[in-house]
């Protein structure tokens, strides 16, 4: 049986450990040590704007490295149409950016038919001070302001620049599940 003093001492030790962990990110003792990216991802999740966190599903709660974001732009051609993004976080995060794929078929100058996305902060302009919130804001911005001067789908970019009405028509067809380009 544990005496009162001993119990009190144990409690005190646990409290100190918790306090240390919250400052240093270090957990000593029996707990499994979390990987560096997990601690960072948890902080990113805590800082997410509600409009993203409300539409974010954690695919792997234990590892925190796979998410699904359902993004419905609040303006523009794709207004209110749900687009599903698959986000996987590498072990090297935040040194390396997450990999993002668009699972919803979309007619967009910067998203190709396989769902690859051309967004500067996901590639050449990534820097570790950016977080998931910045990425989601960037993805949303692609729908508000497509960037035909740096295209991934060159054909879509051409139509966007030369025949905006036709572009809107095809984009709308895509949202209805009709993938013809006329």
């Amino acid at each position: 049986m544990i005496g009162f003093k001993q119990k009190k001492k144990l409690e005190q030790e646990q409290k100190t450990q918790q306090a240390t962990a919250s400052v240093t990110g270090i957990v000593s003792g029996g707990e499994v040590r979390k990987k560096g990216y997990e601690i960072r991802v948890q902080k990113d999740l805590d800082e997410l704007e509600p409009k993203w966190s409300d539409n974010l599903k954690t695919e792997n709660v234990d590892l925190l490295n796979h998410f699904t974001l359902t993004l419905s732009p609040d303006e523009g051609i794709w207004k209110n149409h749900a687009h599903v993004f698959d986000i996987s976080v590498p072990d090297e995060y935040p040194i390396k950016p997450p990999k993002v794929l668009c699972k919803t078929k979309v007619y967009h100058p910067n998203i190709d038919q396989e769902g690859h996305i051309c967004l500067n902060i996901l590639r050449e302009d990534w820097k570790p001070v950016l977080n998931l919130n910045a990425i989601f804001t960037g993805l949303h911005f692609l729908f508000l302001e497509p960037n035909p001067s740096d295209p991934l789908d060159t054909e879509a970019a051409n139509v966007y620049e030369k025949d905006y009405d036709k572009f809107k028509r095809i984009a709308n067809n895509y949202m209805r599940g009709n993938y013809s380009k006329y």
Partner: peptide
């Protein structure tokens, strides 16, 4: 720290 988001007085999380 802008990279790991742990306080600069603390330790970065290392796997």
């Amino acid at each position: 720290c802008g990279i790991c988001h742990v306080h600069l007085d603390g330790c970065p999380p290392e796997a």
